[in-house]
């Protein structure tokens, strides 16, 4: 465990020194500030537009971070051959995958938390009430972000970074759809589409922007169960990534 921790810290340090990370983090912050400056036509005066749009902006930011951070971690290590001394001596392949994931997940989590805090600040500055459900909402965003990170990491072991990004984006869009919306994509083949949808993750479970924006209490059990679901999917994708990487020859 301490080996994975040390490698995760090394990954974290390396990622925070990349321009990609700071670029995505800053662009998302600017977008959040932009949302804060749009006049709200909200008759209720509760900043619902800001919360809804802000949380959505953070979700997109975490998707971009997952792609930006994880899609070229292994390809870069392989091309620069820096993976050789790592795997030859101190690390096993499982530790490599878990360490890389944990490092990137820490960076992504920190970014999401900072973005959520900024959204809270923007709401407060604009004189709106910061809903209590912002924290659980941001925890679900983290769970969704980790899942996306695991997906990108899995793709990175068998695709190139330029192919990884559209694949992840496609999966992200498709997984937002409810079964009804998904089967509606191909009228006449509902059964096939239903079966296909069952195999894909249900990322719509992480969407609690509406109740948060409308200040509707969401049961704690729902947050917990949705987080567990996200973690279970993340561990499944990571196990696939480890299985692929274990079988891979490093020429």
């Amino acid at each position: 465990m301490s080996t994975i921790r040390a490698f995760a810290l090394m990954t974290l340090k390396g990622l925070t020194r990349r321009r990609t990370f700071w670029g995505i983090a800053l662009v998302t912050l600017i977008a959040l500030a932009g949302i804060g400056s749009i006049p709200s036509y909200d008759v209720t005066g509760e900043g619902r537009f800001m919360i809804d749009m802000g949380l959505f902006g953070i979700e997109i930011g975490s998707l971009l971070l997952a792609i930006g951070l994880a899609s070229n971690m292994f390809p870069r290590d392989r091309e620069s051959r820096s993976v050789m001394p790592l795997l030859a001596v101190p690390l096993s392949r499982t530790q490599y995958v878990l360490g890389r994931f944990a490092g990137a997940a820490l960076v992504q989590t920190a970014a999401i938390m900072v973005w959520c805090a900024c959204l809270g600040l923007i709401l407060a500055v604009n004189g709106y009430y910061v809903p209590e459900a912002m924290l659980p909402a941001s925890i679900l965003l983290v769970a969704e972000g980790w899942f996306l990170l695991a997906v990108v990491l899995f793709f990175s072991f068998w695709t190139s970074p330029p192919l990884n990004a559209p694949l992840t984006l496609l999966l992200f869009i498709v997984c937002q759809m409810t079964p009804a919306q998904f089967s509606g994509l191909l009228p006449g083949a509902e059964r096939v589409m239903d079966a296909l949808r069952m195999l894909l993750p249900r990322m719509d479970v992480f969407h609690i922007k509406d109740p948060v924006a409308h200040r509707i209490p969401v049961p704690t059990a729902y947050f917990l169960l949705a987080s567990v679901y996200g973690l279970a999917y993340t561990s499944f994708m990571l196990s696939l990534a480890i299985a692929v990487f274990r079988r891979r020859d490093l020429k």
């Binding site: 301490s2 080996t3 040390a6 490698f7 810290l9 090394m10 340090k13 390396g14 020194r17 990349r18 620069s80 051959r81 820096s82 050789m84 001394p85 030859a88 001596v89 101190p90 690390l91």
Partner: peptide
């Protein structure tokens, strides 16, 4: 192990590499 044509993450320093490898 000493690899042929080694390359490392270039934003790190030798001290950092030694320290991370020692932890691992």
């Amino acid at each position: 192990y000493i690899p042929e044509n080694p390359d490392y993450e270039d934003s790190f320093t030798p001290e950092e590499y030694l320290s991370f490898f020692a932890s691992m």
